[in-house]
């Protein structure tokens, strides 16, 4: 049942409230999961740790803001062109800048991505300025009532879309020939090259796919939170927290980790001030790194 612009009923700190917050956290977590999925896919195949992940997503969010401000394009639809644009960017970045670094030492790759991140986030700052911007869609204040649950329409659509895109990506890697070829590269780069797979092109394609996920995730996220340049590094960190909690390189792990972090941040918001919420995620990260570095879902390398 759709309720248009209702005055929010005041909910006491009860079981209902916890349930509502948890539901919202899970839906946000699905979008986080999609973002982290991009990072995980890129790392799983190319072994590149994308330190520019959040920055790229912030760029996508600004793209959605721009499209909404200029042509009134709903971010849910903007996800398609922006996902495509990020895919092109990702492909170009991998083939022009990152591919020469495949055999370089790990720290050298980090530095490269850190440099890309610095340029991106501050480029955004130069273009869009430091103020937070947002998208006010017509259904921003709508919500659905499901028994005791009151779910924001934006969050519900975003969560569903994230799940859909993640499902498509899973299906692609499971069933498509190209997806299988990419998995072959991930399993054994040398073997894949021996059987004639164009490894570097497939790497670029993987980066494009991961970036496309990110573009979609950005469009969905802009429905829920404001965008400003500092969001970039924060989101990079969040994506790392999620993939490490889930297991770096594991696709299911990224989604599970996303939901877990979304849920725990939302629940933490009930007991600590909002600004301290992410402390919970970092605490989870530190614990997982120390006691289960392969992640909750991942296998030991």
């Amino acid at each position: 049942m759709l309720i248009g612009h209702p005055p929010r009923p005041a909910i006491a700190m009860t079981f209902d409230l916890v349930l509502n917050v948890a539901a919202a956290g899970i839906l946000t977590g699905l979008v986080y999961g999609l973002m982290a999925l991009g990072l995980s896919v890129i790392f799983g195949v190319t072994r590149i740790v994308n330190f520019a992940h959040g920055e790229m997503m912030t760029a996508a969010m600004y793209g959605a803001v721009l499209l909404f401000a200029t042509v009134k394009l709903d971010p849910l639809l903007a996800a398609i062109p922006i996902g495509a644009a990020l895919a092109v960017f990702g492909y170009a970045l991998q083939s022009a800048v990152i591919n020469p670094f495949i055999d370089r030492p790990e720290h050298s790759q980090f530095m490269l991505m850190v440099a890309v991140a610095i340029v991106l986030v501050n480029g955004l700052l130069m273009i869009f300025g430091p103020n937070a911007q947002n998208v006010m869609v017509g259904y921003a204040f709508d919500s659905y009532q499901l028994g005791p649950l009151l779910i924001d329409a934006t969050r519900a659509y975003a969560g569903a879309a994230a799940l859909l895109v993640a499902g498509l990506l899973f299906a692609f890697f499971r069933f498509a020939r190209l997806g299988k070829a990419i998995r072959a590269c991930a399993d054994n780069q040398f073997g894949a090259a021996v059987v004639g797979l164009p490894v570097k092109r497939l790497y670029a394609l993987t980066f494009a796919l991961g970036s496309a996920c990110l573009g979609v995730a950005g469009c969905l996220l802009v429905l829920m939170i404001d965008v400003s340049p500092p969001l970039g590094p924060a989101m990079t960190l969040l994506a790392f927290v999620i993939v490490i909690v889930g297991g770096l390189g594991s696709m299911t792990g990224a989604l599970v980790g996303g939901v877990l972090i979304g849920l725990s941040e939302a629940l933490a918001g009930l007991v600590v001030p909002p600004s301290a919420k992410s402390m919970v995620s970092f605490a989870i990260l530190i614990l997982v790194l120390l006691f289960r570095p392969q992640g909750l879902v991942g296998r030991r390398a």
Binding site: L112, A115, L125
Partner: peptide, 20 residues
């Protein structure tokens, strides 16, 4: 705002790529 940092980033990028 951000120009100095973009400059840092470009310096880092150039050095990492061409003078590892």
């Amino acid at each position: 705002p951000g120009l100095t940092q973009v400059f840092y980033g470009v310096c880092l990028l150039v050095v990492v790529m061409f003078l590892p």
